[in-house]
């Protein structure tokens, strides 16, 4: 049934730190790799070595420029994947029951063998979290690496989503937002976690931790650009090299 559960036992999701994300796209690559080789249909590409390559991804990194009223502009790298919303509109629009939200952990999944590829769930998602697979013609989305997080064949430190495991900056955190004492809940509380597009009423589980305030720019003398450049004569070995090269 594509009706949403009233509550879920856990609210698994990601806390994404916009302060530390460096925009390296490592999580995108890790996600694509894991989800091509494991759960569900492989994440396909269309024309991968041709003139116009494109493909399905479950995680994409945007970069936005924020220009405050005063002070310098700031670049914010912005990873975006499924937010596993409590009121997921992608689930209720599904005509076949392929799209569902799990009662036990709140993960939103697609039963690919029941998906007719109508695309309505992608239309219903405000975040662009769902993409049609160009080869399999079924809807693909972040599974929160459901085949990693409970997988006892993996070492314990690997039982987190591939994007979290790979992030070199520690900008992605995985946990249960239903537990107020979990790392992600505490991070969201301490850092003022943000819901994306709250006015859409989706009640996203994933939280975005906003950039911390920046240090003020150093107070430069207005005349400093007009100062003569400091050009000391090189001494020692470099001085000898300089003179020798001049003579050549």
């Amino acid at each position: 049934m594509t009706s949403l559960p009233k509550t879920t036992e856990k609210r698994l999701g990601l806390a994404i730190d916009l302060d530390t994300c460096v925009g390296c796209h490592a999580c995108v690559t890790a996600c694509k790799g894991w989800n091509t080789e494991n759960y569900g249909a492989p994440l396909a590409d269309a024309d991968p070595y041709g003139a116009a390559p494109e493909g399905a991804f479950l995680n994409r990194i945007h970069s936005f420029e924020v220009t405050p009223e005063a002070g310098p502009a700031q670049l914010v790298h912005f990873p975006k994947s499924c937010l596993h919303c409590d009121d997921a509109p992608c689930v209720t629009v599904c005509p076949t029951g392929a799209s569902y939200k799990r009662v036990e952990d709140g993960i939103v999944l697609v039963n690919e063998s029941a998906c007719i590829g109508c695309g309505l769930c992608a239309w219903a998602c405000p975040y662009g979290a769902r993409e049609m697979d160009p080869a399999e013609k079924v809807m693909k989305k972040c599974t929160l690496c459901v085949d990693r997080i409970y997988n006892e064949a993996l070492p314990e430190e690997d039982r987190v989503p591939a994007c979290v495991r790979t992030c070199p900056a520690g900008a992605r955190h995985f946990g249960d937002f239903g537990d107020p004492d979990s790392t992600v809940s505490r991070l969201a509380a301490e850092r003022g976690g943000i819901d994306l597009m709250p006015e859409q009423g989706t009640r996203p589980v994933n939280q975005y931790l906003p950039p911390r305030p920046r240090d003020a720019a150093p107070d430069l003398d207005v005349l400093s650009p007009f100062l003569a450049p400091v050009a000391e004569e090189p001494k020692g070995f470099l001085g000898w090299l300089d003179r020798t090269l001049d003579r050549l």
Binding site: S63, F64, E65, V66, V76, P126, L196, P198, P210
Partner: peptide
């Protein structure tokens, strides 16, 4: 609102 950064200033892609 889409990025949650609107309170900090103008946001552009």
């Amino acid at each position: 609102t889409a990025t949650g950064l609107g309170g900090r200033g103008g946001v552009r892609s």
